[in-house]
Every structure is written in C-alpha cells, then in structure tokens.
Design a protein around this nucleic acid. Sequence first.
RNA 1: GCGGGUGUGGCGGAACUGGCAUACGCGCUGGACUUAGGAUCCAGUGGGGCAACUCUUGGGAGUUCGAAUCUCCCCACCCGCACCA
Length: 827
Amino acid sequence: MKERYDFRELEAKWQEEWEKNLLYKVTERGDKPKYYALEMFPYPSGNLHMGHVRNYSIGDVVARFKTMQGYNVLHPMGWDAFGLPAENAAIKHGNVHPSEWTWSNINNMRRQLKAMGISYDWAREVATCHPDYYKWTQWLFLLLFKNGLAYKKKAAVNWCPSCATVLANEQVVDGACERCDTIVEKKDLEQWFFKITAYADRLLDDLQKLPGWPEKVKIMQQNWIGRSTGVEFNFTVENTGEDIPVFTTRHDTVFGATYLVLAPEHPLVEKLTAGTPHEAKVREFVQRVRQLKEMERTSADTEKEGIFIGAYAINPMNGEQVPIWTANYVLMDYGTGAVMGVPAHDQRDLDFSRKYSLPVRIVVQPLGEQLDPETLVTAYDEEGFMVNSGQFNGLPSEEAKERIADHMEQQQIGRRRINFRLRDWLISRQRYWGAPIPIVYCQGCGAVPVPEKDLPVELPLKVEFKPTGDSPLTTNPDFLNTTCPTCGKPAKRETDTMDTFVDSSWYFLRYCSPDAPEVYDQAKANYWMNVDQYIGGVEHAILHLMYSRFFVKVLYDLDWLDYEEPFQNLLTQGMVLKDGGKMSKSKGNTVSPEEIIAKYGADTARLFILFAAPPERDLEWSDQGVEGCFRFLNRVWRLVYNYVPQLEGVSLYQDEELDVEARNLRRALHAGVKKITDDITQRFNFNTGISAIMEMVNALYHYKDQVPQEQQYLPLVKEGLWLLTHVLAPFAPHITEEMWQALGGSGSIHQRPWPKFDPAALVQDQVTIVVQINGKVRDRVQVPANLSASEMEQEVMSMDRVIRLLAGKEVVKVIPVPDKLLNIVVK
RNA sequence: GCGGGUGUGGCGGAACUGGCAUACGCGCUGGACUUAGGAUCCAGUGGGGCAACUCUUGGGAGUUCGAAUCUCCCCACCCGCACCA
C-alpha cells in the first residue's frame, strides 16, 4: 500500500501538471454548449481571506461540475486593482508607490489562488489598473459621453473628509463613508456623472427577467431605484403669483392639504421672505437645518421642525388659501422640493400639524368608520371613500385618484408623473489610483474628449500623495498641461479619476477576449455572455450589480452586445463566521487560508468550507470540522490504495449477477451518485452532496470489512472506486487526480464525463414499510416491493404486534402509501 | 416603522411534492489494536422512565388519517432600507 496521503507533494505536482498541459484553457467552440462561471474578482489587498476561499471554492465546483457535464466552461479570474488602500499605503509609508504595492499584492494573491487548485484559465487574467485594461474603461467613458450619458454638473455632493474625495450616493451608508465610517459632508462641486437615471425604468422592470437572482437582491435594487407614480401640480403663491410645483402619490387627498412645505434649500424660501418681518427668523432656521449633518437631517427619528414663512398659496383644486412653511423633513433633491401637507392621511404631516396646531381635515373615510379630525393620532393612509372633496365626494379613493389626475391634466393644473429615488451616478474621484477621466479642458472649446487614438490617458508615476482634497494628478505638470485635441492651444487635463466601480462594471466582458484590440471582441462576447452563474457576496447587491446591469444595457442599446442583462443566475454566498461573528482583523478572529492549506492541503480546506453549510448561508468556522474533512480524505485514500494492488488487471463491472451484499453496495453507490447529481444540479447544495459521498465511502468500507476478502467482487469494487473518485473530483481536485491515476485511469479525471447512475441498481425487491396506528409509528416490516394496497394491508394486519395493539379497537380507516407506509385509524 | 431571512440534539447541519424527525460530520462515552495514542477500527449517543411506554423541530392555535413542512396569531435573533411626499 502506498504510504500516507502526502497532500503537499501531490497538490504541488498536479498544479504544475495542469498548468503545463493548459488543462483549463478554453476557446469558443461549436460542439459543446457554453457555460460562463464567474466569481466576483477580488480587490488585491495582499492576502486571501476565508471569504475568498469560500467564494472561489463554490465557483470552482460549479465550473468543474459543468465541465464534466460536457459544457465548454469559461472560468476566469482577475483583479479589481484600482482603489484607495493602495494610495493610503503610499501616503502612510511614503516610499511605496500604489502601483508597486498593488502589483506585489496581485502576485502574492495569484500564488495563493493557484495553491487552492482552482480551475481558472489564467491566460484571461485582467487587472483593472493595467493600461491595457483602463484604456477601455476610458473608451467606455467616451462612449457614454458621446451618447449623452456622461455629463458634468455642479451639485451638492457627498464628501468624505477622511478619504478626501467625493462619494456616490450608493457609497454613503447611514450618512457615513462606506469605507471608513467618517461622517459625510455636503460640498458643492463640479463633477462627472453617468446618467443611470435614464435607465431607471428598465433597471427596475428587467429585474423580472431574472428568476435566477435571489429575491432579496432584487427587492434591494427595487427599493434603491424607488419608483413612485403620482402627479405633479402647481400651487400658486398668493399676491405674487409664483408657481410652486409639488409632487404627490396621494393626489386623492389633495382636498385635505391644509398647508404647504418647502425644503429649507428651496429658492422660494429666500425669495418670499426677503424684506418681510419673517426674514430674519426664517433665515436663522434655514441655516440651522442646513448645518446639520446629512444623517441627522434625514433620519426618521429626528423631530420634525419648521417655521411659517409668512406667505400663502392657493390650492388649485379648491381655490383654498394655505400657509407656506419650511421644514427640516422636506428634501430638496427629491420630487420638487415642495410638498403639500395632508395631516389626516400622512403620519409625518400629522405629527407636524399637531406640533404647530395646523388644521386637520379628513378627505378619505374608511368604510363603516368615521374618523374624527380632532382626535386622530394615527394618519389614515389606506383606501376609503372621498369626503370634503367637492365633485369627487363619494368615490372610492382609488378611483378618485384617476379622476383627479384626469381633471388636473384637462384643466392643465398638473400632470401625471413618475419619480425615482435613484440619482445619477457620480463617478469623479479626487484621487490618484484610478482610471483618469479622458477629458481635456480648453478655454476656447470647453470640455473636450480625448480622441480614441490617444487612449489610454496614462497615469503618471510621479505625483505627490497628499490628501489635500485635490487629485494628486494636479501635482504633475507634465500630466496636467496638454494641448486641446480640437484647436491645439494649451489646455489642462481633467485630474479626477473614475470611481473604481466603473472598472468593475464591465470586466466580465473583457474576460471574453482579454487581448482584443478593442473594448472586447463582439463575436466572442456574444458567444460567452451571459454569465450563467455569478457568485459573490451580498454586499454588492446594489452598487456593483446595478452598475454592471446599467453598462450592459447601454452596450446593448448601442449594438455592442446582444444581451441586456449581464448575470443570468446569481448566488450570494453567506459570510464566514468565527465564534458567532464575522471574521475580521479588528476582532482578531481571522483564520489564515494559507496556514490551513499548509497544514491540511487545499483539498481539505475546500471540502470543509463546502461541507459546513449550504453556500448562501453563513458558515461557522470550526477547526475540528476541518480536522474531520482531513480525516475523511485520508479515509478515502486508504480505501483506494488498499484496493489498488488487488484491482490490477480486474475489469470494470459489466452487468453480472450479484449476491445480496454486492447488490446492496451497488445500490448505495448509485443512490449516492444520484443524490450528488441532484444536489448540485437543482440547488447547489454541496454540503448534502458531500455527505452523500461520505455515505458512499461508508458503504465501500462496510463491504470491505464485512465481506470476506475472497468473496468480494472486485469488478464492482472497481466500479465503486471509479464512481467515488469522479463525484469527489470537483470538490477535491488534487487527491482525486492522484487516485484516478493509481486506479489505472487515463488522462485527467477533470476532463472525464460526470458519471450517470444506473436506475436498475436502485431497484429494491424488499422494502421497509412503516406501520402507524393513529399516525404514530408502531412498527416496521419488510415486505416485497410493489405490493398493492390490499396486499400491504393484509401483510400488516397479520403482524402479531398489530393484532395485539388493535385488540378491542374498531378500525375506522386504513391509509396506504405504497412501498412506504400504512396508517391504521382506530377508535 | 417597512421589507427579507433564520429558529430542528452538546455543536455545524439533514429531512426534495405533507408520510420513519435528527442523514452526514464534529463532540462525547465505552471497547479493540498498541510501549503509547492526539493514528486507525468497532459499538453507543435527543429528553424522561426499571419497563410497557411517552415527550420532543422558538411559543400558541388550526387544517389533516398524518405537520419541521400548509394556514393564522405571537416571540427571539440576523440582514437590508429608513422623513422619498
């Protein structure tokens, strides 16, 4: 028997062998269906963590399994390599350039990934910080620019003082920077935006085309896009006659408006108070509110506060005069920055009205109830029947909505309108380590796109890393100063770089043709896309996944791609926990993948992480669990090498007659293959798949130890070990390769077809039937399979135990479940 | 507050369309082999009871011959969103 399971030697050997033979290299081909398996590429922080190991182990099983099932599988890997940590390292240590830092991290992490034995086609590796890549990121910026989807505007933007850069709306979490938790400030800056709002409807509606996405992620995107349908109509300022447009989704309650509220930033607040006795107090209020941090301002817990500005407006529906207020709870950047206050039917308005003693008027009454405006504490925001609403009285509120909208449109008071919560995507970053925005500013010509032939606009190496709030690129005059591509006069380059989410919004397309002399080869992209299975953390539910969907839709519209959605199926893997909490450096509960691999090998690490929990659930790390998986692989190893000498020259099982023990073994083996296949195909339940493999191993051990050696049927054992190595191969690729070779297999096991189970082997001639009396299990009995209901009943009724238990009772009913169960109902 | 999820032995988790609850693994107990075992193998392992038996899937009700699974109410924890008019 071969010595022990020396995973160190064996894993290194096979990794080298696979690389030498280009085992995982793929090209487009017509003879097999394609399958694109993709895991979210990592930021090269320096070392793999367990979350990566889990992500890539899941992806590798999918890729290897699909390969064995006969698909032509694309399984690439790369690096999301631009971003702040590299630059912060440069600021902190002074002597290490972000480029150097990043590339050395990439080299280290590539080595770690290779040590995991994952089946990547490394020839397709991309790194977003490489000029060959960001050249095309810049090209895509220009494509959007030319199509009116990239524009510059001055806006109050989110500014992180610690990162010294602006942030996209999506990168602000609870009013703080998603990266460093610093409270975000508002700053008025000229910045570049992508017009993602132009795709709001499609980004929302097309979620329905993604049945292979988790409901949770779709709902998160849906909420983020936040479509609401309503009307926009004008109140008119009394005396001065200015229009104040308001947006509402509850136009059925328009007769219940008893006041109007403007956001503190609303231009009319200043205008209508100028020179009036209210001016000073209102200005003081507005300044106080504007000084509040974003978080305090927008939190629902913040007490509603406001002030009457001294003017009145006319409700166009009933000609009524209502006071105009300004208040902290109305936001300038949603809708029109002005809302009608309907206290009876909106809780916020009711709270506000009670505080400032504003009138409350019921205009929708629930069926069979009479709300009292004097005592109302909970606003009634459901459907009902119209009251106090002129010509609309008596209508159901839903119908009144339509009629009022019609009326407004006919009378040209207002119009139906859809509003989105989604904002345009702010992509400018005042940082160095990103793709430069390919724009030149010329005094005469304005913002001029860099011509395609001049791409990439390369990042200069020589800059100063100081977090000043200006891009470090401003410190390099050779970069900054250029000539206008249009008129040739001196001009300045844009010094901001792009948000790194731009880089990652299209990398899956570049993988299809990593060396293409254009953004990607259309034919190849159309061959490989969509990604059949995308796997990654749920933290990307909104940002990355929505931006990528946006990019793909733009490319689809511009005839660059035949597909409208990038990711057909999405699996969001759970976190890796230790001691009940997420593994993190600050908690000090991390486990190093590198150490685990050194101690037990990659096969054990992969097996454990797939066995410990289903992929979408959180996984509790257990050192003892790892130990158990290591023991299991050793157990498999001993089993195989115990038989290797005996199996020499033995042919594979071919349908011969088997004795009882052998038949039981064969049934267990084929039942195992069936279960693993189902578990992977139907729901990626690798944990139960692995448990089925363990049962196969247990069955083989049982046969080996319980049946005298001279009676063991070796052709069947050979079949068993063949099946075993094949189904284990996607999970533990190295050890199975080694054992396959030892068992006389030719070629790589990873290029073998996935085994089919033999339905004939599953047939049982005896089955165990559960005997229940009044639904309680009382006994079990062995009977021939396929008995009819009455035969079953006859068998059961003649059992001693059943006769005893039924003595003196009256049988009311007998419920038979063929080959499974018989329930006797008695009184 | 709204939305989504989870709740099963000492632990991680199984149970597919309602049909043997606790597969598989960890841990634990006992034994075998051994100079030794932290290697390996065998047996046992939800609770109560000497036993026949009985109780048990967060809690409570219901549907059903039969419920971890379906329906209703409640509780706990986790995640996401949160003044969006």
